[in-house]
Structures are given as C-alpha cells and as structure tokens.
Amino acid sequence: MEDELKMLLQAVSDKGLRVLSLDELDRLRVLLSAKDYGENKKADKSKKKLLRQVNVEIYNRHNPRRFF
C-alpha cells in the first residue's frame, strides 16, 4: 500500500495528474485519504491540496467541458 502510494505520487510529481488513468486517480484518492500525517501540519495541508486537485481532475474527466 505504501509502495503503491509512493509510485503514484512520483508519477504525479514527474508528469502531473493527466498521466494517470481514472482508476489510478481513484486509487490515489483512496490511499491519500487513508494516510495520516498526524502532527505534521505542512504535510497535511499538502495532502488536502493534492486531494482537491485529484477530485477536480476526476470530475473533469467524467464531465468534459465543451467549448464552441
């Protein structure tokens, strides 16, 4: 579980969220939600920011915007 989280975070760090499939994004969301950073406020803030970005990316893939 920890290794899978590290692998997904490394992929996001290198190339961004767009390289992950929907299944991988969902798995990343689940793993991040389960991770507890305890007293480390900076890590917890980063976790919440990344979770917001993951949720937005999942939403955008399910509901693509169409520009005319």
Rank of each mutant, 00 (worst) to 15 (best):
K47C: 11
N60V: 15
K42T: 14
R52W: 10
Y59P: 01
E39T: 09
R65F: 03
E57M: 12
G38W: 06
Y59S: 10
R65A: 13
R61W: 03
D26F: 00
N60S: 08
S33I: 08
R65I: 07
R29S: 14
R66T: 08
R27A: 11
K48V: 04
Q53L: 10
P64I: 12
L32P: 00
D36M: 10
K41Q: 11
L32K: 07
I58T: 02
L28F: 09
K42H: 13
N40K: 07
Y59I: 01
K42Y: 14
E39V: 08
R29Y: 12
K42M: 14
R61H: 07
R27F: 00
R29T: 08
R61P: 02
A34E: 14
R65C: 09
L31C: 03
S33V: 04
S46K: 13
A34R: 14
V30W: 03
L31P: 01
Y37K: 07
R65L: 08
H62Q: 09
D26R: 03
V56K: 01
K35I: 02
K35E: 10
L28E: 07
V30N: 04
H62N: 15
R27G: 08
N63G: 00
L31Y: 03
R65D: 05
L51K: 11
L32H: 07
L28W: 06
R61G: 02
D36Y: 09
L28A: 09
V56S: 01
S33R: 09
Y59E: 05
A34F: 12
Y59Q: 05
K45E: 12
K48T: 05
N60C: 14
I58Q: 05
K47Y: 12
R61Q: 06
L31H: 01
H62I: 04
L51P: 02
I58G: 00
I58K: 05
L32M: 15
